[in-house]
Design a protein around this nucleic acid. Sequence first.
DNA 1: TTGCATTTTATGTAGCTACATATTATGAAG
DNA 2: CTTCATAATATGTAGCTACATAAAATGCAA
Lengths: 235, 235
Amino acid sequence: MTAPQRRSWQDIRDILRGQILDRSYRPGDKLPRDEDIAAALGCARSTVQRAMQDLVDTGLVARKRKGGTRVRPDPVTRATFDIAVTRVEVEATGATYGYELVSQARARTPEAVVARFGLKAPEEMLHVQALHLADAAPYVFEDRWISLASCGEIEAVDLSRQSANEWLVHHKPYSRIDLRFYALQADETLARQMQTAPGAALLVLERTTWLEAVPITTVRSVTRPGHQIVAQNEA
Amino acid sequence: MTAPQRRSWQDIRDILRGQILDRSYRPGDKLPRDEDIAAALGCARSTVQRAMQDLVDTGLVARKRKGGTRVRPDPVTRATFDIAVTRVEVEATGATYGYELVSQARARTPEAVVARFGLKAPEEMLHVQALHLADAAPYVFEDRWISLASCGEIEAVDLSRQSANEWLVHHKPYSRIDLRFYALQADETLARQMQTAPGAALLVLERTTWLEAVPITTVRSVTRPGHQIVAQNEA
DNA sequence: TTGCATTTTATGTAGCTACATATTATGAAG
DNA sequence: CTTCATAATATGTAGCTACATAAAATGCAA
């Protein structure tokens, strides 16, 4: 069954992935060099290269110059998540988006925030608490600290009309982000904000951003009970 | 601004990203065509193409044939997570890994599992519960259903010695995965397993895999209190 | 004006070459 | 046998060409 027509790098990738998945190549095994694969499959080395890069990106193989390509011995599940602006996320569900500013004040950063940013000492920042609503019910409660050194202009913005989330996304780019998930048991105050029972298990998304080494903002976003974060279907 | 030496596609990407971040191009704006960018920056179109693909991958721009390239009007945070085999994850923290099989039995899948797999009707599968330990303390409790149709051989494996997690990873590849996070309040039984207080908020990772359309396994992994999932630092 | 076929055009992809770079492998010197 | 310089080699990257493809723009006919 000669393959006279062109084969795309995706085809090559799928063939190689198939051989790894059906254990023609096992974890730890070395694959042939790109050139030989290209000859065997009837394509150019650059096509194999592109396919290989994709397999590296998805965590299936590891490559080293001169060392060749090996099937990763420690398989990992690699997942990608897209986290949109809360308003967009709510509207995507078909619900009506609402927003309420809860509090806004300058304050010295507590230890937890100092640690998140990796600061040497506490400093004065803008502390903003706000509630995002879906069909008038609490959707996300966000507790945010914004660096005045890098985002002083935000003090001139009316955060009761536009969420800090949205303003920052459109005005303050970042180059580094720390993103983490964890579960939190709602205390009295939080339960009241989220209109749920004290003790409820809530999924929390914590995001801290910098532009180069300069802190921008850190948010703790507490989601409503039952909220799930789902990975994108990978290519 | 002559640029005598070669510039890598990463350089081009960084220049373009910089122009987007400093708002030379704003959300919704159209960028010049690749060829013009290539001419302006003194590189080949293929280099711009590679840079652009990276910006597409990170969610910063959207491209359409003939339509050109636009800065995405709805910025998203894109994060990647690597989820390793539990043993490896525990050992990476420096702790000693331990494993206990809690239960193993054939059973008809409950509705929740039928739904996760998208089955038409319940079917008999292997139901396995197991506890992963870090320094002898509960680390992850996994509740797993394994399709006998696709993984019948696993019944011959001694799952008290080797975790189903590990066996499946090394013997049963998958081509599709559904992965999600949520928070769960520990009930009496779960609290006992995890040696924590009933009502504690626990982070849950739910994974369901298929090979093509054929169900392989679905797991609900309940992590110990305080567990966080952290995104990889992106390139 | 509307509807439909055609052309134009920007991105997408494959192939080739040339050279860069990181390692491993080799071999000479002590 | 060890150490260190050197050669060999597999992957990584940039540039070029040629052609494929999707979608917008255009033009023609009714």
